[in-house]
Amino acid sequence: MKVLLVNGSPHEKGCTYTALNEVAETLNHEGIDTEIFQIGTKPLAGCTACKRCFQLGHCVFDDKVNEFLEIAGNFDGYIFGSPVHFAAASGAITSFMDRAFYAGSRSSKQPFNLKPAAAVVSARRAGTTATFDQLNKYFTIAQMPIISSQYWNMVHGATPEDVKKDIEGLQIMRTLGRNMAFFLKCKEAGIKAGIAFPEREEITFTNFIR
């Protein structure tokens, strides 16, 4: 089993990475393989609603989003991490997830359906809960079970060294890793026991303006 951790910070080894790495080390200890995917600092366009992904099965813009979608189906769970920018997720990860989840829902591989996910946020001081709520909405619309911890998944600090002093925050990350591992093992056991996935209905859209 493998979990993909997405770092939405422009800093490759910054505060968000420090939190994600704590989760990854715990997952590894629980026998779960991990990989960290760095969004990077190159410009990422937001979704233009061109709907070309309906025909292509991937985004029309060939950048980090398609690189992610190419490998996403190989993983059993996901953790998306973001710093707090003006009480919200970073612009990069917002554009990234808008397009990845929209194009991913059009992919024949269906990389997200019923796979567990979690959000991790880092901030110097505040804006964490708003960012946490924002990221979790991607998971609920994609039928992804959300993995929680003993508290909201956040760490505090202006530098990686500060984050390492956030003893409770790091404990929250470790608990998150253990909870993710437990869920993945339960899911695997259920599949082996013959428990079928839920029946999928064709999606029906209702427009309120007629």
Results as ranks from 00 to 15, higher is better:
M1S: 05
V3I: 15
L5F: 13
L5W: 09
S9G: 06
S9P: 05
S9F: 09
P10I: 11
E12K: 15
E12I: 15
E12V: 15
K13D: 05
T18M: 05
A19Y: 09
N21P: 02
A24F: 09
T26Y: 04
H29V: 08
E30F: 08
E35A: 13
E35Q: 14
Q38T: 14
I39A: 07
I39P: 13
G40N: 10
T41F: 10
K42D: 12
K42M: 13
G46W: 03
T48M: 09
K51D: 05
K51F: 13
R52K: 14
F54I: 15
G57F: 00
D62H: 11
D63N: 14
F68V: 02
E70Y: 13
I71N: 04
G73R: 07
G73I: 07
N74F: 06
N74K: 15
N74L: 09
Y78T: 01
I79Q: 00
I79N: 00
F80C: 04
G81Y: 01
S82K: 05
V84Q: 00
H85F: 14
H85A: 04
A89S: 10
A89H: 03
A92D: 08
S95R: 11
F96K: 08
D98C: 12
F101P: 00
Y102R: 06
A103I: 10
A103S: 11
A103P: 01
G104M: 03
S107C: 07
S108Y: 02
Q110C: 05
P111Y: 02
P116T: 02
A117E: 01
V120W: 12
S122P: 02
S122V: 04
S122R: 03
R124E: 10
R124P: 14
R124T: 12
R125L: 07
A126K: 09
T129I: 14
A130M: 09
A130V: 11
D133L: 13
D133C: 11
Y138G: 00
F139E: 01
F139I: 04
F139W: 00
I141M: 06
A142S: 15
Q143H: 09
M144V: 00
I146A: 03
I147N: 06
S149R: 06
Q150N: 13
N153G: 08
M154N: 10
D162S: 11
V163H: 03
V163K: 03
V163T: 07
D166N: 12
I167W: 06
L170S: 09
Q171N: 14
L176K: 01
G177I: 14
G177W: 00
R178D: 06
R178M: 11
A181Y: 05
F182P: 01
F183T: 08
F183Y: 14
L184A: 08
C186H: 13
E188Q: 15
A189T: 12
A189F: 15
K192V: 01
P198V: 10
P198N: 04
E199K: 14
R200L: 12
E201H: 13
I203P: 04
T204A: 05
T204M: 13
T204V: 15
F205C: 09
I209H: 02
